[in-house]
Lab assay of single mutants.
Amino acid sequence: MAMNGTITTWFKDKGFGFIKDENGDNRYFHVIKVANPDLIKKDAAVTFEPTTNNKGLSAYAVKVVPL
């Protein structure tokens, strides 16, 4: 089920960042999981599918909501 969130941290040079989800949890995401990576920036609103990996909470099918 899709969730909403906000990008809180973005490491462009490393290709990953973190999203604060609607429950207040931080989720890892990688640029290859983003549909529109050219719009990635700190504080951008996103929708995504929540999941977990071996390191904890993460996100896939991430879409940055255009302003």
Rank of each mutant, 00 (worst) to 15 (best):
D21N: 00
K14Q: 09
K41W: 07
G17S: 01
N4K: 14
K55T: 07
E22F: 06
N53A: 08
K42W: 06
N26G: 05
A35Y: 14
F16I: 05
A61S: 10
K63G: 03
I19P: 00
T52A: 12
L39E: 10
I7Q: 00
T9A: 15
M1I: 12
V46L: 02
F29Y: 03
D43Q: 09
F16M: 04
K14H: 08
F11K: 05
T51Q: 11
N4P: 05
N4A: 10
D13Q: 10
D25S: 08
D43H: 14
K20G: 04
A2Y: 12
G17W: 02
F48T: 00
N23Y: 10
T52L: 09
F18E: 02
D25H: 10
P66S: 13
A45D: 07
K42A: 08
A44Q: 06
K41F: 08
G56R: 12
A61K: 13
G15H: 07
I40S: 02
F18K: 03
D43W: 15
K42D: 04
M1Q: 11
F29T: 01
D38L: 10
N4Q: 12
E49H: 15
Y60E: 15
P66K: 11
G17R: 02
N26Q: 12
K41V: 10
Y60C: 13
A35W: 12
A44P: 01
F16A: 03
F48N: 00
A59L: 03
N53T: 15
I7W: 02
K63D: 05
Y60L: 13
N23L: 09
T6R: 12
V65K: 09
A2Q: 13
A59R: 01
P66V: 14
K12N: 08
I40K: 00
A2L: 14
N4G: 09
K41H: 11
F48M: 02
I7K: 00
I32C: 15
H30T: 12
T51S: 13
G56L: 08
P66A: 13
A45V: 11
E49I: 15
D21C: 03
F11H: 07
A2V: 14
V65Y: 10
T9N: 11
T8P: 02
K33M: 15
D38Y: 10
V65L: 14
D38M: 10
K14N: 06
V31S: 07
Y28C: 06
N26T: 15
P37H: 05
S58F: 08
A61P: 02
L67W: 13
D13E: 11
A45K: 14
M3S: 05
Y60H: 15
S58L: 08
G5W: 02
F18Y: 10
D21H: 02
G5K: 01
V31G: 05
V34G: 04
T51W: 15
K63E: 09
K12W: 08
G24H: 05
D38T: 11
P66I: 13
V64S: 02
I19T: 00
P50N: 02
T47G: 02
A59W: 03
K55E: 07
A35F: 14
K14T: 05
K12A: 12
V31Y: 10
F16Y: 14
D21R: 01
R27V: 05
F18H: 03
T52M: 11
P37Q: 05
E49K: 15
N53F: 08
K14A: 09
K20N: 07
D25T: 06
I32L: 15
T47L: 09
N54C: 11
P66T: 14
T6V: 14
E49P: 01
H30Q: 09
R27L: 03
N23R: 10
A45L: 13
F48E: 01
N26P: 05
K55Q: 10
M3A: 04
H30S: 13
M3D: 02
R27H: 04
D43G: 15
V31Q: 09
G17C: 02
K14R: 13
V31N: 05
K63W: 13
L67G: 12
F11W: 08
G15F: 06
T51N: 09
I19D: 00
M3Q: 05
P37G: 04
T8S: 09
M3K: 06
R27I: 04
F48S: 01
T51P: 03
Y60T: 15
K33E: 15
V65N: 08
F48Y: 02
V65Q: 11
P66E: 13
K20D: 04
K14E: 07
V46F: 00
V46C: 09
F11A: 03
L67K: 12
G5S: 02
D38W: 15
F18P: 00
V34W: 03
R27A: 02
L39P: 03
W10Y: 09
T51C: 14
I32V: 12
N36R: 05
T52Y: 12
W10N: 00
K42L: 13
I19C: 02
K63M: 12
G15E: 05
N53G: 13
F18R: 03
L57W: 03
A2G: 10
M1C: 13
E49N: 14
F48L: 03
P37A: 07
N53I: 07
G24Y: 04
A35I: 15
H30I: 08
F18V: 06
I40W: 04
D43I: 03
I19V: 03
V65T: 09
P66L: 11
N36W: 05
L67R: 12
G5A: 03
T6A: 05
A61N: 15
A44V: 09
K14W: 11
I40D: 00
W10M: 03
G5V: 02
H30D: 11
P66W: 09
A2N: 11
D25P: 01
G5F: 02
V34Y: 03
A2D: 07
G17T: 01
Y60F: 12
K20A: 07
E49R: 14
T8K: 10
G24C: 08
S58P: 02
A35L: 15
N54T: 12
V62N: 01
N36S: 05
P66H: 11
I7D: 00
F11I: 07
K42G: 04
F18W: 10
F48I: 02
Y60V: 15
A45F: 13
K20L: 14
R27T: 01
V34R: 03
N36H: 06
K41Y: 08
D38K: 12
K42I: 14
A45C: 12
A59C: 13
T52P: 05
D21F: 02
I7R: 01
K63A: 08
T47A: 05
P37W: 05
A59K: 01
D43K: 09
T9M: 14
H30L: 08
G17I: 03
K14V: 06
P37S: 06
V64C: 05
P50E: 03
T8L: 10
T51A: 14
L67D: 13
N26I: 15
A35T: 13
A2H: 12
P50H: 04
T47I: 12
K14M: 09
F48Q: 00
T47E: 08
I19K: 00
D13K: 12
F29V: 04
K14G: 06
K20I: 10
A44L: 06
K42Q: 09
K41C: 11
T51I: 13
K14I: 05
H30P: 05
K33A: 15
I32T: 15
A61T: 06
K20P: 00
S58W: 06
I40Q: 01
A2E: 11
V31L: 10
L39D: 10
R27Q: 01
K63C: 11
D43T: 07
D43L: 10
Y60N: 15
K33Y: 15
H30G: 06
A61G: 11
Y60M: 14
T47M: 09
T6H: 11
G24D: 05
G56E: 04
Y28P: 01
P37T: 04
F11T: 03
T51G: 11
A44F: 05
N23C: 12
A61M: 11
E49D: 06
F48R: 01
G17V: 02
H30A: 08
P66F: 12
A45W: 12
G5H: 00
G15P: 01
K12E: 10
T52V: 12
M1A: 12
D13A: 11
V62F: 02
K14F: 11
D38N: 11
N23G: 05
S58Q: 10
A61L: 09
G17N: 00
E49G: 06
G15V: 03
F29M: 03
T51D: 09
M3T: 05
P37Y: 05
N36M: 05
V64D: 00
D38F: 09
K41S: 09
D13I: 10
Y60G: 12
V64P: 03
V64M: 04
I7M: 01
F48V: 00
M3V: 06
V62G: 01
N23V: 07
A44R: 09
G56Q: 07
V62S: 02
G24T: 03
F18I: 09
D13G: 09
A61W: 10
F16N: 02
L57V: 03
W10E: 01
R27W: 10
T8Y: 08
K41L: 07
F29K: 01
G5R: 00
T8E: 08
P37D: 03
N4D: 06
V64E: 01
G24N: 07
Y28F: 13
M1D: 09
S58V: 10
F18C: 07
T9G: 09
M1G: 14
L39K: 11
A2K: 14
A61H: 12
I32Y: 14
M1N: 13
R27F: 06
V64N: 01
I32E: 14
P66R: 10
K41D: 06
V65S: 08
P66Q: 12
K14C: 09
M3N: 04
N26L: 15
N23W: 08
A59H: 02
W10H: 02
F18G: 01
D25C: 11
